[in-house]
């Protein structure tokens, strides 16, 4: 399993070898996607891969060391207020993540099916589909 998290930490925490501990003690593969650290603390974006259990324990370890952990959902999101339910995206989406309910005419977005290919982004007239990074 893989997951991406944003870590925000205080100076105390930045003095500890947290990524080392994640790797050594929690058997995780850690990929540092971005890091900004200085004397007043910092921010890091990590991709953690490993067993689901280990990831959970790893995240608990971080929290115990006063690191705040926020998961990022990567991929594509829909702004439901902006969507007019026109349906333009339906014939564009290769995975049928976007579909229309014939009775109500409502277009729904199934994030599970979305592969974040991005094809729908510039096809949506009110620009309701956005890529998160």
């Amino acid at each position: 399993m893989k997951t991406k998290v944003v870590l925000t930490f205080s100076p105390e925490a930045s003095n500890q070898p947290i990524t080392h501990n994640l790797i050594a003690k929690h058997h995780l593969l850690v990929n540092i996607l971005r890091a900004e650290i200085d004397e007043v603390g910092g921010k890091m974006v990590l991709e953690l891969s490993g067993k689901a259990d280990d990831i959970r324990k790893g995240i608990d370890y971080l929290k115990d060391n006063s690191v705040s952990v926020r998961p990022i959902k990567e991929g594509v999101r829909r702004d439901d207020d902006a969507c007019t339910h026109c349906g333009m995206c339906i014939s564009i989406c290769p995975t049928k993540a976007l579909s229309i309910d014939q009775k109500s005419g409502k277009v729904s977005f199934n994030e599970e099916k979305c592969v974040a290919c991005g094809v729908c982004i510039d096809a949506c007239p009110p620009r309701a589909m956005e890529i998160l990074i």
Binding site: T84, H85, C86, G87, M88, C89, I90, S91, I92, I100, S104, G105, K106, V107, P125
Partner: peptide, 14 residues
């Protein structure tokens, strides 16, 4: 077989 979609909103029309 060609997938179709609409530019006008049936939901809002209703």
């Amino acid at each position: 077989q060609v997938p179709t979609s609409s530019l006008s909103s049936l939901y809002k029309a209703k």
